[in-house]
Amino acid sequence: MDAPAIAIIGGGPCGLTLARLLECKGIDYLVFERDASEYSNRSGGSLDIHGETGQQALDEAGLLDEFKRHARYDDTSFTLSDKLGKRLIHTGQGRDAPEIDRVELRQLLLDAIPKEKIRWGHTLTGATIGHGNNPSLEFSNGVVLSGFKLVVGADGAWSKVRSVFTDATPKYSGKTNLESSIDKESPIYDITASKAGPGTHVAIGSGKLIVTQRQGNGSYRNYFGIPISEDFFRNSAMDISGTETIRDLLLSNFYADWSDEYQNLIRHATRFRAWPLYTLSVKDMGWKSVPGFTLAGDAAHLAIPNGEGVNLAMTDSLKLAFKIAEHGTDNLAQAVQEYEADMFPRAVGTISEGKAMLDIMYAEDPQSFLQLLSG
């Protein structure tokens, strides 16, 4: 069987949005995903999908009504506090950016794509220009494939496809989020729910932050943002799964001067996971087009979280699908050049905004963030 025109590397929201849009436009493709099956890696937090970007992509994909059945419109509110628990602003109610769990969004997209169009258990290890100047893909399971007219790297922060264009790699920001949970069975669940409520609650102080966000099942996910070295957990004897050890570290080294409200979150949090924050540089944007390849989402423009990540990724997919449909699979070079010329300014913008947000979110106090919200 001949290879389809398009190979999509990565089965996250970015790659699956592109796949669904190509499906709607009658353009043949295959998705290659490292997870073993659609039931693997059912994790990730809550995502706010914006009306003018992410929802637009879902509308074009014919999935907006289905999305609205899953979306949580009462979780758009945002509360900002200081480290002593003083509430400074409560806003965002009614904003057209409803929340949906990442796993739900992924499943919604998967259900809209023929199962035979996804190859599970395919971890890309190398992408090169092979025989006849056609893309060649090597996977960790030993499979080597070629014959595609275009390979789209939607393979995230540590994209293997990116190396075709540049040797740029993400740089550590100096900050790490320790993700954790407060489940409904937690003894402080009711207190957490009454204080955090629906939506997202952010507390900033002493160069650290705490984000508490309600999930689709009613539980709360916490992110304890702390300044540590990139190799802090790799080079120490600390076991990240050792809950009491992590709690003691946070309470003694980082949040000793925070209110009991936040310290209790630490004392009762479970399932800790380290999430170091990385970003590409604006200097990494604007690469020279390479025939047969392009990038989308975090693979193209990884940034510090600034509320735009998944929305920008889905916008990339929407724009690229339009260009492919406009020019056809016999003129993909033109489609890619026009897509990339449109994408680079968005990429520079989100990377710049992410770096600015880092300074605001990890400030000594929340005043700069308060001014941003008030403005």
Rank of each mutant, 00 (worst) to 15 (best):
L30Q: 14
Y220C: 00
D330P: 08
A325T: 11
S206F: 15
Q215L: 15
L318S: 12
D35N: 09
I9K: 10
L84N: 12
S374A: 13
F139G: 14
P345V: 05
E326W: 01
D48I: 14
A19L: 10
D239H: 01
A5R: 11
Q334S: 12
P345A: 06
L302M: 10
S173Q: 05
T169D: 06
P98E: 02
L251H: 12
N306V: 13
E179N: 13
D239M: 02
Y262V: 10
Q55C: 04
P345R: 05
Y189K: 04
K160H: 10
R106T: 05
F32Q: 08
W275Y: 14
L249Q: 06
L373V: 10
L105E: 03
I9C: 09
P366A: 15
P227M: 07
T128P: 03
A269D: 11
Q93I: 11
G92F: 00
S136Q: 13
A154S: 15
D65K: 00
S159Y: 00
S194K: 08
A127R: 05
L30F: 08
D342R: 02
E185V: 04
D298I: 03
S194L: 10
G216I: 04
T270F: 00
A196P: 00
S163M: 01
P291R: 05
F148G: 14
P227H: 04
G15Y: 04
P305D: 01
F344G: 05
V144E: 15
T79Q: 04
D190W: 05
H201G: 15
V161L: 01
P13A: 02
K117W: 04
T125Q: 05
G85Y: 04
H50T: 05
L84W: 06
K86P: 03
Q371Y: 01
P114N: 03
A356N: 03
F139H: 08
Y189E: 11
L109S: 05
S194Y: 09
G12T: 14
D257Y: 04
A203S: 14
A7G: 03
G54P: 07
A256M: 14
N41P: 08
A356K: 00
L150A: 01
M343C: 03
G85Q: 05
Y262P: 08
T166R: 05
T17Y: 09
A269E: 08
I228P: 07
L47D: 15
Q107C: 08
H131W: 07
L108T: 02
A321S: 11
T17V: 15
Y172I: 07
F369Y: 04
S229A: 15
I113C: 02
A168G: 00
V336R: 12
D330C: 09
A157Y: 04
S180T: 15
S289D: 11
Y189I: 12
D183S: 14
Y39F: 10
D359C: 06
E230W: 08
R72F: 02
K323G: 10
H131G: 09
V151L: 12
R273M: 08
S259C: 11
S194F: 06
G44M: 11
I100E: 01
R69L: 14
P135R: 15
S289Y: 02
S241N: 01
Y223G: 12
W275A: 12
E338T: 02
C24Y: 06
D2H: 09
S236C: 08
L88E: 02
D183C: 13
L18T: 07
I188S: 10
Q371A: 06
W120S: 14
G26A: 13
E99I: 03
P305V: 14
S206V: 14
